[in-house]
Amino acid sequence: MNGSSERAEPGAATDVITTLLEHARGLITRYPPAAAAEAMRRGALLVDLRPTEYRWRFGEVPGAIAVSRHVLEWRLDVTSEHRLKELRPGDRDQEIVLMCNEGYTSSLAAHQVMAQLGLTRVADVAGGFVAWQAAGLPTVSRLTR
């Protein structure tokens, strides 16, 4: 582009992040919100990756565990002393469902932690918290507690 204000035509080429996202989603399980709720009833851990501000502003899913994205690997490493207390030590097959606001960060994170930590059952919520709430599934507001 040589410093000009020209821009590529939309759809002319797929950007790198779109390719990475499509690749990740092809390798993970993506649950619609109702299926994610059912997975929780079966014992899966729902991990909410959204920033604290989003949880305060828009609400939370009862029973979800809030984990900042920047420490996710430490909290999901089943061999680490820093793992979530809800994780069974050494159990790489425990089901974990990640949720972000709209289902993008969670897809990338699910693929990444599976590959890096050897976890076998990491999924995400398609559409994230926005879709969960739109489906009428339970949420709680910190403002009304």
Rank of each mutant, 00 (worst) to 15 (best):
A24L: 00
V122W: 08
L119D: 04
V125Y: 07
V140K: 10
E73Y: 03
G103A: 04
R41Q: 13
V78T: 09
L137P: 02
V61T: 08
C100H: 03
E81G: 15
P51S: 08
E6N: 13
S5F: 10
Y104C: 05
T139H: 00
S106T: 06
S106W: 04
M40H: 13
L98T: 03
A126E: 15
R25H: 03
V71G: 02
R25L: 05
R145M: 10
S106Y: 04
M1H: 14
A12F: 06
T19A: 15
G11D: 07
R75P: 05
F129T: 12
V16G: 11
A8M: 13
R121F: 00
G90T: 10
R88H: 12
L27C: 08
H23K: 11
L84K: 07
E6M: 10
E22L: 10
E95R: 10
T139W: 00
S68P: 14
L137K: 05
M40N: 11
A135R: 08
I65V: 15
R41S: 13
A66K: 02
A8Y: 14
A36E: 06
L143F: 11
R83P: 04
M1D: 14
D48N: 01
A24M: 02
Q133R: 14
T19R: 15
A64C: 08
A123W: 09
P138R: 09
Q133M: 02
M1W: 12
S141L: 10
V125D: 08
A109K: 10
G63A: 00
L117A: 00
S4Q: 04
L87G: 00
Q94H: 05
W56A: 15
E73I: 04
L119W: 05
D91M: 03
A131W: 08
Y31V: 01
L119Y: 01
H82P: 00
R75M: 05
V125C: 03
A24V: 02
Q116T: 10
L98F: 01
S107W: 03
R7E: 14
K85E: 13
R83W: 01
T144P: 01
A39K: 05
D77E: 01
V71Q: 02
V130A: 15
